[in-house]
Design a protein around this nucleic acid. Structure first.
Lengths: 334, 334
DNA sequence: CTGTTAGCGCTTTCAA
DNA sequence: TTGAAAGCGCTAACAG
C-alpha cells in the first residue's frame, strides 16, 4: 500500500495525497476529506524510509543510553520520549554496554541514521575526541559534564557533582563523623567519580579531616553486588570508620545489606549516604540519606538545548542543574 | 558523497561500487581494490535509507518495551541487544508508555520500519487482534503468555505465572498463614494479573481457605508508591490479616516501607511476598521472599524462537520457562 | 566481469 | 487548487 494506491482510490494525484498527509495548507477541504477517508479506511501510514530519502532532513534524534540497568538513565529516557511525542522528531534509541565506547558507536549510528541530533544519556563521549569529531550534528550529554571538551557542537547538562558530594559530606561531618570511608567508581575511567571524590575531599579538607586513600577508598562498579563486597573490604581495612560515603544509591544499598549481614546496623553502628535520590532510595529500609538529581530538569534542559542547537538559535553550552539534599534515615545524627 | 561520486573517482560504474560494498563475488580483485581505496579514502558508508528503500528485506528487528521503568524488561533488553550483536540483524528499540496500546504502536512501527521481526517486551498485543493482524512478520511476546491468541505468527515465552503464584502462596499457607491479602494489578486490563490471581486462588482453594475479594484484594499500579497506599488500605480493611501476596517485587517493597512506617514490622507482624526475583529484592531489608523469573532464559528463548520463525524453520510456539522460588526473610516461618 | 538502467515510495517544483 | 514528473541513493536485472 503506497500513496499511489491511495491516490487511485481517492481519485487524485500522488502529490495531492502527499500534501494532505503532510498538512500542507493548499488543499481544498473536499479533496482533503476524500483522501483522509481512504487513508483511514486502510490505516495507511507513510513509508518513512522513502520519506527520509527524499527530505534529507531526517528529523530523527538518536539517543544513546550508557548501560542497561541504570534506573536514572531509564527514567531520563522515559521523560525524553514523552516530551518528544509532541515534537516533529522521531527518536531512535540505542542501548550500550557499560564498556562500549559511546563516541565510537555514535559515529556508526551517525552514518547509519543521519540523525538531526544526538543525546548521550550517561557516558563521556568527549573522552574520545577523534570519534566525536566525526559527528557533524548537535549533541548533548545528559548527566555528565562535558565542558572540558572544546567540541563546538557538544553540549551537556549535569548536576553539580562537586557541590553535591561536598554537601552530603558536610552533613556527615556536621553530625560528628570524622572517619569516613568511600565506596566510589573507578577514578581512572569515570569523570563523575573524579568530581564526586573531589567534592568529598573538599569537605574533608575544609574541616581539616585527614583522608587516607589507601585505607579508606574502595572502588566498585555501580552495582549492589560489587559495592557489597567493597563495604566488606572497607570495614575490614578500617575498623574505626563510622560513616561511608557512596557514590550511588545502588552502592549505598549494596553496602547497607552487607553491613546488616555482618551484624553492623545502619545507621546505629555505621552511617551510609548515597547519591542520585532515586525512588528506591526512599523506599529502602532505612530510607537513604542522599543527593537527589532532578531528573525532569536534566531531561528537559538537555532536550531544549539540543533543539535550540539544531535550530541554530544558540551555541553549545554546559549547564548545571541544582540538586536537593534528601534527609533520610541512614545517617546517625548527633 | 554517494556511490556515484565513488564510481567517478574509481573510474567504474555505480553498479560495480554497489557490488563491492555488498560483497558480491563477481568483481575482479583489481576493481575491488580500486573501489575500496576510494571508499576508505573518504570513509564512505552506504546510505542505509536508500538501501532499505530498495531491498525490502530490512534485516531489522524491532523491540517494543512496555513501560519505562521496569527493571525486568530493561534487563531483558540488555540481554537481547548483547546477543544480537553477533547476528546479521540490526535492532530498533521503542519504549512505550504503560498505557499505550502496544499492538497499535507495533503496526505503526511495522509500516515505518518494515522490520523482519518484532519482539514485545512485556505487554499483551494479542489483546487487540485487529492491529496485531496487520503485522505480517513473526512476533514474539516475552514475559507474557500469548497462547490464547490464535495468531499464526505470534509466539511467546513466559514464566508459568499460574504455577508461580500458586507456589509462593502455598509457601505462605505452609507457614501457617490463613488470612492473606493481595496487592495486585488491574484484573480487567492485565492478563498477568489474572494469571497470578488465579494461581493464588488455586492454592487457597486447595487448602479450603476462604478469600473475600472485596475485603482482601486491593489493586495498584506496579510501583512503590501506589502499592504503599494499597498496603495501608489493606491493613485498615483487614486487621486480622497476617500475610500479603503482592504481584511484583516493587509492590512488595512499597508495602514493606508502608508497614514499617505504620509500626508493623515485617515479617514479625506481617509477612510479605513479592514476584519477579530482581536483584533489588535480594538486597532489600528484609530480603524478599519471591518467585524469580529466569531473565536469561526468557530473553534467549524469545530471540531463538523469533529467528527460527523468520527463517521459517518452525511455526509460532508458546513456551513456558521454569521459575525458582526464592526463600528470603520477608515471611515469618512457622 | 562490468556498464546501464528501471524503479523502490516519497516530496516538491513547475505548469496548468 | 491540482496534476505531472523529476529525482533522492541505492540495488538488481539485463545486456554486453
Amino acid at each position: 500500500m503506497t500513496i499511489k494506491d491511495i491516490a487511485r482510490e481517492a481519485e487524485c494525484a500522488v502529490g495531492t495525497v502527499s500534501r494532505v498527509l503532510n498538512n500542507h495548507p493548499d488543499v481544498s477541504d473536499q479533496t482533503r476529506e476524500k483522501v483522509m477517508a481512504v487513508v483511514n479506511k486502510y490505516g495507511f501510514v507513510l513509508n518513512n524510509t522513502a520519506r527520509r530519502l527524499k527530505v534529507q532532513d531526517s528529523k530523527t534524534i538518536s539517543v544513546l543510553v550508557k548501560g542497561t540497568s541504570s534506573i536514572l538513565l531509564n527514567d531520563l529516557l522515559g521523560i525524553i520520549q514523552k516530551r518528544m511525542e509532541e515534537l516533529p522528531y522521531s527518536i531512535s534509541v540505542t542501548v550500550l554496554d557499560e564498556f562500549d565506547n559511546e563516541a565510537k558507536i555514535a559515529s556508526r549510528v551517525y552514518y547509519e541514521q543521519k540523525p538531526t541530533g544526538i543525546i548521550f544519556l550517561g557516558g563521556s563521549p568527549e573522552e574520545s575526541p577523534e570519534d566525536l569529531h566525526k559527528l557533524q550534528v548537535p549533541c548533548v550529554v545528559i548527566t555528565n559534564d562535558a565542558s572540558a571538551s572544546k567540541c563546538p557542537f557538544l553540549s551537556s547538562v549535569s548536576t553539580d557533582d562537586l557541590a553535591g558530594a561536598r554537601c552530603i559530606t558536610e552533613w556527615l561531618i556536621k553530625n560528628g563523623h570524622k572517619k569516613i570511608g568511600v565506596i566510589g567508581g573507578d577514578l581512572q575511567s569515570s569523570g563523575i567519580t573524579r568530581k564526586r571524590y573531589r567534592g568529598f575531599l573538599d569537605a574533608m579538607e575544609a574541616h581539616n579531616l585527614p583522608f587516607d586513600f589507601e585505607k579508606s577508598y574502595v572502588s566498585a562498579r555501580y552495582s549492589f553486588e560489587d559495592s557489597a563486597k567493597a563495604a566488606k573490604e572497607l570495614v575490614e581495612k578500617n575498623p574505626k570508620m563510622t560513616a561511608i560515603f557512596t557514590m550511588a544509591d545502588s552502592m549505598a544499598i549494596g553496602a547497607c545489606r552487607q553491613l546488616s549481614d555482618m551484624g553492623i546496623s545502619v545507621p546505629e553502628k555505621m552511617s551510609i549516604v548515597g547519591y542520585d535520590g532515586l525512588p528506591y532510595a526512599d523506599y529502602y529500609n532505612p530510607r537513604l540519606t542522599t543527593i537527589r538529581q532532578d531528573e525532569v530538569a536534566l531531561a528537559e534542559n538537555g532536550l531544549d538545548i539540543l533543539l535550540k542547537n539544531i535550530e541554530r538559535v544558540v551555541k553549545a553550552e554546559h549547564k548545571l542543574i541544582p540538586f536537593t539534599f534528601v534527609d533520610g534515615e541512614s545517617v546517625k545524627k548527633k
